[in-house]
């Protein structure tokens, strides 16, 4: 949750929407009025919402993947070469530290570590796993409803509340 830590005591207005069209429309209108949207809940991944929010399609997780991939190649080559160097056995008349067969461990470790890092990146950035769901969350958001969370100060809470209703929210809640 962006800013959740220092805005812990702030009030949030959560608007609930019934379908995609409504929520996208609401996002556009909130943005048009320069009301900062904290987050948008949806039961599934939606490119419409992403586009409406103006977010890039790829997150920073890609750098985790890149790092994992490079680390994987290094690990694979190092493991194959280092272990062979321990005894320098000759097998099949080959040089004790042959280079061709290091390709396979390098490739497989590339994939493995890249996947580990991608997953790790996703979990880290989402602060997962976590024990407590945030208080803005509504169980129906994973089922059939959409939600928009907007933080407000004491002064503009009422107006944002009204805007939500005006933009088509089926239900608007104020959460301290």
């Amino acid at each position: 949750m962006r800013g959740a830590a220092f805005m812990a005591n702030q009030t949030a207005v959560v608007g609930t929407f019934g379908n995609m069209e409504e929520v996208v429309k609401a996002i556009r209108r909130l943005k048009a009025e320069n009301i900062p949207i904290d987050s948008v809940y949806s039961p599934f991944r939606s490119s419409e919402i992403r586009e409406a929010l103006g977010e890039p399609s790829l997150g920073p997780g890609r750098f985790f993947t890149l790092f994992g991939a490079i680390a994987g190649i290094a690990t694979g080559i190092f493991l194959a070469a280092y272990t062979a160097a321990q005894w320098r056995f000759i097998v099949g008349g080959k040089y004790p530290i042959p280079y061709v067969p290091t390709v396979i461990p390098a490739f497989e470790f590339l994939i493995l570590l890249a996947v580990f890092f991608s997953l790790g990146g996703m979990l880290w950035m989402n602060k997962m796993p976590k024990r407590q769901l945030s208080k803005h969350y509504d169980k129906r958001f994973s089922q059939d409803l959409f939600g928009i969370v907007v933080y407000c100060s004491a002064s503009d809470c009422d107006s944002i509340y009204a805007r939500m209703e005006q933009f088509g929210a089926r239900e608007v809640r104020r959460i301290e």
Partner: peptide
């Protein structure tokens, strides 16, 4: 579920990771 909440940030990080998973799994 590891505390999943389907907000736009979740979906974006998830989407990025899933895409790379798919991209890595294919050559695998």
């Amino acid at each position: 579920a590891l505390g999943w909440e389907g907000s736009n940030d979740y979906w974006r990080h998830y989407g990025t990771a899933y895409l790379f998973f798919a991209a890595l799994a294919t050559p695998l």
